[in-house]
């Protein structure tokens, strides 16, 4: 009953791509998509997600079929130790979905307008993912590259 969605995936299903950093929703290493939206999987109970569609980093792509966001993180060297990376990538994919749905952010000049994806917008929208190696500049570049590529192929 006490099992978080994160622990259910890691310890019961063997999907260890999602990482446990702080276990309190502060670092974002555990980010998963639930019904297409990114959440902190450490801060929700597995039992509350019966019937939901859950996507972890393993579901986005693997070595043989990399997701454009995974490719972009490799190309831009968007990590150092790599511990936060699965959460960064899943969060970035979720974030781009929010942008394409027109959601505003704290960095949006006029919330009545649709969202655009400036570098400031990427930084604000990704603030729930911490990187202790501070690979932030390359993470931002990777997300911008992937965003352009995903738009071209959409």
């Amino acid at each position: 009953m006490r099992t978080s969605l994160l622990d259910a995936c890691r310890d019961h299903l063997g999907l260890t791509g999602s990482k446990k950093g702080c276990d309190h929703g502060q670092c974002g290493a555990c980010t998963m998509l639930v019904n297409g939206r990114r959440i902190n999987s450490c801060l929700t109970l597995a039992v509350m997600h019966e019937g939901d569609e859950v996507t972890t980093i393993e579901g986005l792509g693997g070595p043989a079929n990399l997701h454009p966001m995974q490719e972009a993180f490799l190309h831009h060297d968007g990590f150092q130790c790599g511990y936060c990376t699965p959460g960064q990538i899943v969060s970035a994919v979720g974030m781009l979905g929010e942008v394409s749905d027109g959601w505003p952010s704290h960095a949006t000049d006029d919330v009545k307008d649709g969202a655009s994806l400036s570098l400031d917008e990427i930084r604000e929208r990704m603030s729930g993912n911490l990187c202790r190696c501070s690979a932030y500049p390359n993470i931002v570049d990777a997300i911008e590259t992937a965003s352009t590529k995903m738009k071209e192929t959409a």
Binding site: G25, G28, T31, R37, R38, I39, N40, L43, T44, S91, G94, M95, E98, P104, S105, H106, T108, V111, R125, M126, S127, G128, N129
Partner: peptide, 14 residues
């Protein structure tokens, strides 16, 4: 504006 100033994208989704 107040909502967007709070928490993170992941937390606001929950």
């Amino acid at each position: 504006r107040a909502l967007l100033a709070g928490a993170s994208g992941q937390l606001r989704n929950k």
